[in-house]
Design a protein around this nucleic acid. Structure first.
Length: 495
RNA sequence: CGGGGUGUAGCGCAGUCUGGUAGCGCGUCUGCCUUGGGCGCAGAAGGUCGUCGGUUCGAAUCCGGCCACCCCGACCA
């Protein structure tokens, strides 16, 4: 977005006369809006450890829901969970030259333990990813072609020393899942790589309501040590791209370093072919920046910790009593059909406060239930994303809520898709490039060289995101050099 | 690591220029009152002024070092 310091401040001076109740708007300052939302919705705090964050219950609940769904999808595709050590002998990392060279600046090293300095060669690194230490185990686990494919996943934390952290999007420590698999040949490994990319796409679309572009990364954007890297790329509301998941075909690179071999049917020793793939707590940032608005968090129902809150309204015990009873009846009914429901009977806060608060926190549907409603045997329902109040009869309320949740899930995807499509352009001239840089996904011809890629980054702040699978590739001329191009690739400013 | 900014009560900030021992709003607690879009009134609690050092009779305020966080770049999921 803005490349200068925003002229904020000023209106917040004067002893706190500014309006602290409202978030900064997305239009004013997208990045302030994001930071403030994360804190105000109680998703996460900065900690005293640079670049590290505390994930609060509201934020962790989102992660738990993502984990639950993804874990199910991994199990359905035959993967098993395991756990490997957080400390990796430094020497392991060094075995794959490209791997260590690219990760070295980001790696935290344990130099002291047991009260003394560890000698050179006996140090540990804190995992930035686990290809090496997992391969060490795989070498023992795999003996025969009958042991393959080996399909393993790990849920873990990793540490990568980041220069510029940002809550959820880029933190020094983050939570993720890393899948690691071994196969008999390249075709099988390649199929697995693409299969898991599909899993990510499905998860993003059907659960996060986030459309993504599936495609292949360029050489320079590839994972250190991979043969090929694929990604899903999403567009945030500020039109920047966010890499939401990656899947790598590792070839035999790590197998050769660790002698991970199997005996084939023919009795020959062969190196295994491997893949790895992962998504992280960064997805929470993606979720926020895809759907939320100036009133606060908006979460697709399929991942929302709370679907429905019933706010009890009433002055006196006589008024509240029957309302409370009805609210709990409704809540019980809602639970039966799988709606995650909360009844708010707190008398110390007014209803207006609660409406704002639940909007900030991203509860999907709010039910307002008071004496006036009860008198007409109705309840007032408000869907978080559209904020429209509708009165429905109490008997039909829960059915209506289910309908609203389903509608919201669909509408969020539809809206995000529309936004992505409206801001994706075919760009053919330097003029257009100047005009569109930073305004979305630019589909451009590129001569395939890292030099040109670097130039476009330097001059326009755009990086290659991926080469989309579903884009029919026709030859053309590179937008910068005029050299032949095999097809278009997505450029964008990225997180 | 470079450029910019900020650290004062749980949160948001004023006070710093021009040194004199700390204030406002929100929140919290108590009581009353109120409840359909961030209620009201009264009272109360709460601060080693990021940290270390220097100048001074006296430092939130002036000087220097360090630390942390935020924004902009380089690195990255």
């Amino acid at each position: 977005m803005a490349d200068t310091n925003a002229p904020k401040q000023q209106n917040q001076k004067q002893g706190g006369k500014g309006n602290e109740l409202k978030l900064p708007t997305r239009a004013e300052n997208f990045s302030d809006w994001y930071n403030d939302l994360v804190k105000r919705a109680k998703l996460a705090d900065n900690s005293d450890v640079r670049g590290s964050m505390v994930i609060r219950p509201n934020g962790y609940a989102l992660w738990e829901n993502m984990q639950r769904v993804l874990d199910g999808m991994f199990k359905d595709t035959g993967h098993q969970n395991a756990y490997f050590p957080v400390l990796i002998p430094e020497a392991y990392l060094a075995k794959e030259k490209k791997h260590v060279a690219d990760f070295a600046p980001q790696v935290a090293v344990v130099t002291h333990a047991g009260g003394k300095a560890l000698p050179e060669g006996e140090r540990y690194v804190i995992r930035p990813t686990s290809e090496t230490i997992i391969n060490r185990s795989f070498t023992n686990w795999v003996q025969s072609y009958r042991d393959l494919p080996l399909l393993i996943n790990q849920w873990a934390n990793v540490i990568r020393w980041e220069m510029r952290p940002r809550l959820f999007l880029r933190t020094t420590e983050f939570l993720w899942q890393e899948g690691h698999t071994c196969h008999v040949d390249e075709a099988d490994a390649q199929a697995e790589t693409l299969r898991m990319l599909d899993v990510y796409e499905t998860f993003a679309r059907d659960y996060m309501a986030m459309p993504v572009i599936k495609g292949q990364k360029t050489e320079s954007e590839k994972f250190p040590g991979a043969v090929r890297t694929y990604s899903i790329e999403a567009m945030m509301q500020d039109k920047k791209a966010l890499q939401a998941g990656t899947s790598h075909m590792l070839g035999q690179n790590f197998a050769k370093m660790f002698d991970t071999m199997y005996q084939s049917k023919e009795g020959k020793k062969e190196y295994v072919w491997q893949t790895s793939w992962g998504v992280s707590t960064r997805l929470i940032g993606a979720l926020i920046m895809t759907h939320s608005d100036d009133a606060g968090l908006v979460v697709p129902p399929r991942l929302a910790p709370t679907h429905l809150v019933i706010v009890i309204i009433g002055r006196t015990p006589e008024e509240r009593g029957p309302v409370r009873e009805k609210a709990h009846t409704m809540a019980a009914e809602a639970k039966k059909v799988g709606i995650r429901v909360l009844v708010d009977d707190d008398e110390t806060k007014g209803p207006g406060f609660k409406y704002a608060e639940y909007e900030l926190r991203g509860v999907c549907v709010r039910a307002e239930l008071g004496p006036k409603d009860l008198a007409q045997n109705q309840v007032t329902l408000v869907r978080r994303d559209v904020k429209e109040k509708v009165a429905v009869s109490i008997d039909q309320a829960i059915g209506k809520v289910s309908e609203m949740l389903e509608g919201m899930q669909q509408d969020l995807l539809a809206r995000a898709t529309e936004h992505k499509n409206a801001n994706t352009f075919e760009v053919n001239t330097l003029e257009e490039l100047k005009d569109k840089a930073g305004k979305g996904f630019l589909l451009m011809h590129w001569d395939g060289t890292p030099e040109t890629e670097a130039r476009i980054k330097e001059e326009f702040g755009l990086t290659t995101r991926n080469r989309p699978f579903d884009l029919k590739q026709e030859p053309g001329r590179c937008i910068m050099t005029g050299n032949p191009s095999a097809g278009r690739i997505v450029f964008a400013t990225a997180y």
